[in-house]
Computed example of a mutant assay.
Amino acid sequence: MDKYIKHQYVKTANSLEGKNYISAMIAYNAAPTVKGLKPASLINFTIGRKNRIELWKFYKDEICKEFDLEYIELREKFESLIVLFYKKELLEWYLSKPSSQVFLDGLGYEGHMTLEEKLQLLRERFSCSCPDEVGIFLGYPIEDIQGFIKNEGKNSLMCRYWKVYANPDRAQELFETYDKAKASIARSIISNTTLSSTDINYRPN
């Protein structure tokens, strides 16, 4: 994404307060999911200058309703709160793909489990560390997740939204699509300091 747009987004977002600030942060960082391009996104809220954790807790239900998102808080400790934002139908579809289900079966996510049960298990596994299978929930290609595990996170072909181990051309196309989603929301925040339903429903070309 254009560095100027990103810089202007950061400058504008930091000038906002309360709900406007935390909404802008969520919309930008979860943009590919907000726009229905990716099943889920992770955001790690920290206290920082504006106490993002408290802002999230106060406005979370209102914001997620406006953005048509579901969420689950995966882990909170010290000054950090990790939240998974997701589109329910899209995530259910992605997890039900044969390749995804085979992978998850080996980790205890049985096929008969509901989405809510799978998310609860993911949260339990997050209590110790960030589990490898979170990549499935985030919509990463199965080949890249398997490559990450096999190579212990080393020797990737490229690294942006995730570490790529197979089909870099496909990954680059996805990265560019996600960048367009973030740039679209960034421009809306810069120009209006608010997000309309038109902005949220926009799909990049």
Rank of each mutant, 00 (worst) to 15 (best):
F137D: 01
V102Y: 13
D199R: 04
Y21S: 09
R49T: 15
P98K: 02
C64I: 13
W162S: 03
K163M: 05
G111Y: 05
N20R: 14
W162I: 06
I185P: 05
Y71K: 12
D105F: 10
W162C: 03
K118H: 01
I63F: 02
E76R: 15
S23W: 04
Q101I: 02
K50S: 11
I200A: 00
D61A: 07
E70S: 15
N205A: 15
V10A: 13
D199H: 03
E110C: 12
L95T: 03
L174I: 08
N201D: 15
R160M: 09
F103L: 09
P98I: 00
L95N: 03
N29H: 15
M113H: 11
K3F: 08
L119C: 02
D144Q: 03
F58R: 10
K88W: 10
V83K: 00
S127V: 12
E133S: 01
T12K: 07
I190Q: 02
N29T: 11
E133T: 00
E92P: 09
A27F: 12
F103R: 04
Q8I: 07
D179S: 03
A31N: 05
L37G: 05
R203S: 15
S156R: 02
G48L: 08
V164C: 01
Q120C: 09
S129C: 14
I149W: 03
S196H: 09
Q120D: 12
S129N: 13
K88C: 13
I53F: 13
Y109C: 06
Y109G: 05
Y165N: 01
I63N: 01
A24I: 04
L81F: 12
E76H: 15
E66K: 14
I72W: 08
Q172I: 10
G135E: 01
Q8L: 11
A24Y: 02
W93A: 14
C130S: 10
R75K: 14
K3C: 06
K6T: 11
G147A: 06
G147T: 01
Q8C: 11
N167L: 09
N205Y: 15
K154M: 01
T12R: 05
D61E: 13
S99W: 03
K77N: 11
K87E: 07
H112S: 13
K180S: 09
E62A: 06
V10L: 15
R52G: 08
V83H: 01
R75E: 05
V83Q: 06
E17G: 10
Y202W: 14
T193I: 12
I22V: 07
T198S: 15
W93M: 15
G111M: 11
I63L: 08
L95S: 01
K3V: 12
G106E: 13
I136P: 00
I47V: 14
G48D: 10
Y21I: 08
Y202Q: 12
Y59M: 04
M25D: 09
S156P: 04
E73Y: 08
K50F: 12
N151D: 14
A171L: 00
F85E: 04
Y94D: 03
K97L: 09
